[in-house]
Write a protein that binds this DNA or RNA. Structure first.
Length: 114
DNA sequence: TCACTGACCGTGG
DNA sequence: ACCACGGCCAGTG
């Protein structure tokens, strides 16, 4: 069940997914922060690419909690429905206005925090 | 096989 | 303050 990815546990993509899964309820994170947290030579674009394949991974990755640096819901178009990401965030008491998270910095979560 | 692209971000002009 | 560009990995034409 854990082998959704055929690569090794050291694979950088799995590292990304692992961090994303650690994002607590009602919090969000950015691609850049994740990339920096993973370290290595990973850049934000790589995180985005990994998230594109996130739906193939188990356990499911809360991709709706990952936004870009501006708090903009850039990846919403990749969800099942264009409004799904926004609805998921609102379900977590996060206000979304015009594809952007309101008071984005207040909901921002950094890896390592609890 | 080569070249381009992608859910991005930081830096420099 | 705005615009342009480089970077890193994997997949696709």
């Amino acid at each position: 069940m854990k082998k959704a990815i055929k690569k090794n546990p050291d694979d950088w993509m799995e590292a990304v997914y692992r961090i994303v899964r650690q994002i607590p309820y009602g919090k969000v994170c950015t691609y850049g922060i994740i990339a920096e947290s993973v370290g290595l030579r990973l850049t934000a674009r790589m995180v985005g690419w990994a998230m594109n394949h996130a739906h193939r991974v188990v356990p499911a990755v809360p991709a709706h909690r990952v936004v870009n640096r501006n708090g903009l819901l850039t990846g919403k178009h990749h969800f099942a429905t264009p409004t799904l990401m926004e609805e998921l965030l609102r379900a977590e008491k996060i206000s979304v206005r015009d594809n952007e998270i309101v008071n984005f910095k207040e909901y921002l979560w950094f890896p390592g925090e609890k």
